[in-house]
């Protein structure tokens, strides 16, 4: 038996997966040296190469920005932006804005996802629930959450609630659809396999449907987070007393481009960090997936 295992086992699969990189190595680098080292070395070089290219690209981009700023374009230069950022930080405004924006987005996003997951599961599992929920979800999905802001402002006043609510909606709508998709696309054979092993509906739900839909849920959460973030900034541009969007909107009134740049950079970095965190969670929770 073991002979079979070795012949068709993981070792072979690994080789197949490594091949493209090994070829790349011989093509671009023509690495001399020991055969067995080759794949590992190819991997290293490819990574380093990508990182170097990334660094070049970032430095180059900032260089172009700087050049544009110096050649009469109305941009502030990178040092000016950093200086403004430091100034905003020292005055406490930047922290205040970051805290305001992050609080809104986290509350809205977490509440939206927390509701979306059970609703998505119920929709996927019970036909009755699907029939009742689906028209509304499909309808509201076509409306950008921001388009509801005027209505929400009238109904809920101008405090924190309306902003958090539209973010909640943005996260909920994206996440509910993908959770539902996850549930309905669970492989029938897996459900049958559980059934023939004696599992009843409740157990199948917990032990098969939930884990099998996790990748879909996480994709939904990532998209939902992006959508929340976009909605947040726009909502703050329209109606807020603090927050990154509000700060940028104020700066616009005073033609303060440096502050606008600080806002943009902060929004980009925070969005990226949150996305990476979810990506990390994804690779931890769904590492079992066969990636082709």
């Amino acid at each position: 038996m073991e002979r079979v295992a070795q012949m068709t086992g993981p070792a072979e699969g690994d080789d197949v997966r490594r091949q493209p990189e090994a070829q790349l190595a011989t093509m671009t680098m023509a690495v001399p040296g020991g055969e067995p080292e080759k794949p590992a070395r190819a991997k290293m070089t490819k990574r380093t190469k990508l990182l170097i290219l990334n660094a070049i690209s970032v430095v180059g981009g900032i260089g172009i920005w700087w050049t544009l700023a110096l050649t009469g374009f109305q941009f502030p230069t990178p040092p000016e932006v950093i200086e403004t950022g430091v100034k905003l930080w020292k005055s406490g405004l930047l922290q205040e804005d970051l805290a305001a924006s992050l609080t809104r987005v986290l509350i809205g996003f977490l509440a939206g996802s927390a509701l979306a997951i059970p609703v998505g599961f119920v929709m996927g599992w019970y036909t009755v629930a699907r029939g009742l929920f689906e028209p509304w979800i499909q309808f509201f999905r076509t409306i950008p959450p921001l388009a509801l802001l005027p209505l929400v402002l009238v109904l809920l006043g101008i405090g924190e609630v309306p902003k958090v609510f539209v973010i909640f909606l943005a996260a909920f709508l994206v996440c509910v659809i993908s959770t539902y998709q996850g549930v309905v696309s669970v492989d029938r054979t897996l459900i049958n396999a559980a059934r023939v092993l004696g599992a009843k509906d409740g157990t199948i739900f917990v032990r098969v449907v939930v884990p099998a839909s996790t990748p879909f849920i996480l994709v939904g959460m990532r998209t939902g987070l992006g959508s929340s973030w976009a909605t947040l900034v726009a909502a703050e541009l329209l109606a807020a007393q603090a927050g990154l969007g509000y700060r940028m909107q104020q700066a616009q009134l005073y033609y303060d481009l440096a502050t606008i740049f600080v806002g943009i950079v902060c929004i980009g970095i925070l969005g990226l960090v949150m996305d990476r965190l979810l990506l990390l969670a994804e690779s931890k929770l769904t590492g079992w997936q066969e990636r082709i």
Partner: peptide
């Protein structure tokens, strides 16, 4: 209905990939 007295083995293996 299905029952543990009958074990079924499917062509597509049907292993739970997360276990």
């Amino acid at each position: 209905g299905p029952g543990p007295d009958r074990g079924v083995i499917f062509q597509q293996y049907a292993l739970f990939p997360w276990l």
